[in-house]
């Protein structure tokens, strides 16, 4: 049985750990709020852009843009959005497990990764997978320019023919306590051509507008995914840290009990020693 001092030390260490987990939980909660706010703000832009894109594509007679034409799939690219740091429960593990299972689907094609976040980078490197590029230190509330750098790399690589399909793998934000790992196709861009003629005038012409509109759409898709991934990360970390704080509480209760027991045992022992001593004297 551990002595009083040992238990006391243990209690102290659990308490200080609990303080850290508590602080991390609170920090994650506030970051989550900020990220969610950014996601809400980005909605009007996304809606308008999607509406415009759908409209332009529908007015085309045939799909003409290289970002829209499906090619026979020989090489795929996966943009893997993970966190830089751990202590976020199953956030990274669940996503990477999903990606590992999905790899089986691309048996006869080459897969290359664009890793965003340290954990994904480790997954690619340690698993002996192919890496095109890695990004880390994405802001806690991602900025559009950060997404743009990634999106431009993806679009360029696609147009050069390095990839025939590009996917985004990330944790979709469902609620604070729930995330869903998803593998979403980014390129080629889907859409029905020839659905409806347009009443719009296009300046200078449709193809030119499409030339700029499609990469913008990709920028925005990546931005959106970054926001979702970050919101999920903050949510997962908040829940994980909340659970650790609760666990620490439970542990402290048990430790307090055994500390009291040890103390009482010591007192009882002392009393019996004194009594024995007194008896010996008389």
């Amino acid at each position: 049985m551990p002595g009083e001092q040992d238990i006391k030390r243990h209690i102290k260490s659990v308490k200080s750990t609990q303080q850290i987990t508590k602080a991390m939980k609170m920090v994650a909660a506030s970051k989550l709020r900020k990220t969610q706010k950014a996601a809400v703000i980005s909605r009007p832009y996304t809606e308008k852009l999607e509406q415009l894109l759908e409209h332009v594509i529908a007015s085309l007679e045939v799909k003409t843009h290289s970002l829209m034409i499906a090619r026979p799939v020989k090489n795929v690219g996966i943009v893997l959005l993970t966190s830089d740091r751990g202590l976020a429960g199953g956030y990274n593990t669940n996503l990477l497990r999903m990606v590992a299972t999905q790899e089986a689907k691309f048996k006869d094609v080459g897969i290359k990764y664009i890793a965003v976040g340290r954990k994904g980078f480790d997954f690619v490197r340690k698993g002996g997978r192919n890496l095109q590029e890695d990004f880390s230190n994405i802001s806690d509330t991602p900025e559009f320019v950060e997404a743009k750098v990634i999106a431009e790399l993806v679009v360029d690589s696609y147009e050069e023919g390095m990839y025939d399909e590009v996917y985004l793998a990330y944790q979709q934000f469902i609620s604070t306590i729930q995330q869903q790992p998803v593998l979403k196709k980014l390129l080629p861009i889907a859409g029905e051509a020839g659905a409806a003629p347009s009443e719009y005038i296009f300046e200078p012409h449709r193809a030119k507008v499409l030339d700029v509109l499609l990469p913008k759409y990709i920028d925005n898709e990546v931005y959106h995914a970054l926001l979702e991934a970050k919101a999920s990360e903050h949510g997962a970390r908040m829940v994980a840290m909340g659970a650790s704080t609760d666990n620490a509480n439970e542990m402290l209760e048990k430790l307090a009990l055994s500390y009291n027991r040890a103390r009482q045992a010591a007192i009882t022992r002392e009393i019996s020693e004194i009594v024995a001593g007194a008896n010996a004297l008389s």
């Binding site: 332009v56 009443e199 719009y200 005038i201 296009f202 300046e203 507008v209 700029v212």
Partner: peptide
């Protein structure tokens, strides 16, 4: 005001 529907870059 009252411009015809238009899309441009």
């Amino acid at each position: 005001p009252n411009h015809a529907p238009l899309v441009t870059g």
